[in-house]
């Protein structure tokens, strides 16, 4: 453990390089998933009541998909023989970001949907009777539910920063290119080299605490 702290506090370049890369991948994938995820959440929340429950169940099911399944799906798209093979994303940072984007999207959509359904029904009625058009309603709702949107963003970031399946399948754990905290931990632990694995585990632990505190602080209050 003391060696793990030494790696972190001593600013060891490779360890912090892995941390930075992981956070960078998570940042971009969360960014790319945000707009489509928010729109999907809004669309689900504006469905007729009879369709809302199946839509919510579908979104929740997507959030529960194992990361390797998401990785496999994206792999089939970006592998050399896949429809997007010409992009040469496989075993490159772009491939990891793409896979994590697919992973984050349903998380954002599902949290946005859940947050919107908790909005006071008087809000919707007020918008309707004021005669606000579709876009004005959308913007007003985004403003009203901004804490929900930020909480969804933070939760999605936390989820993708700590996943391993997509990174491993699409990134290939290439040193200096696609190696992230989780894939580095898996590799180091398999080799019996626990110092860096422990150091990266500590970073992930702190990240998980910060993300959960953030989501808790931003989530809309009941009542």
């Amino acid at each position: 453990m003391s060696e793990a702290f030494r790696l972190l506090l001593g600013g060891e370049a490779e360890t912090w390089g892995i941390v930075g890369r992981s956070l960078g991948f998570a940042f971009f994938s969360t960014l790319f998933s945000f707009l489509p995820g928010v729109l999907a959440g809004f669309a689900a929340a504006s469905l007729r009541p009879r369709w809302k429950r199946p839509a919510a169940a579908f979104l929740n099911a997507l959030t529960a998909l194992p990361t390797v399944v998401v990785g496999l799906f994206v792999y089939s798209l970006i592998s050399r023989s896949g429809p997007l093979g010409f992009l040469v994303f496989l075993y490159a940072p772009a491939g990891v970001v793409m896979g994590q984007t697919f992973l984050a999207l349903p998380i954002v959509a599902s949290l946005v949907y859940a947050g919107l359904t908790k909005l006071d029904p008087r809000f919707r009625e007020t918008l309707l009777t004021l005669g606000a058009g579709r876009w004005r309603r959308l913007l007003a709702t985004a403003k009203e539910a901004r804490s929900v949107l930020v909480a969804a963003l933070v939760a999605a970031f936390g989820r993708v920063a700590g996943e391993v399946g997509v990174c491993m399948m699409l990134g290939g754990n290439i040193r200096g290119s696609t190696r992230t905290m989780t894939t580095a931990i898996a590799l180091d632990a398999s080799k019996g080299e626990f110092e860096r694995a422990m150091a990266l585990g500590l970073v992930l632990f702190v990240l998980a605490i910060v993300v959960n505190l953030g989501v808790h602080a931003l989530a809309p209050r009941e009542g």
Partner: peptide, 25 residues
């Protein structure tokens, strides 16, 4: 326009809320 018994005031300032009525039209 319909006003609830306990009206809903949207997140934001009073002027945002009042102007919202006019902008909606």
């Amino acid at each position: 326009v319909y006003l609830h018994q306990q009206p809903y005031i949207m997140a934001g300032s009073v002027s945002y809320n009042v102007e919202f009525g006019a902008r909606s039209r």
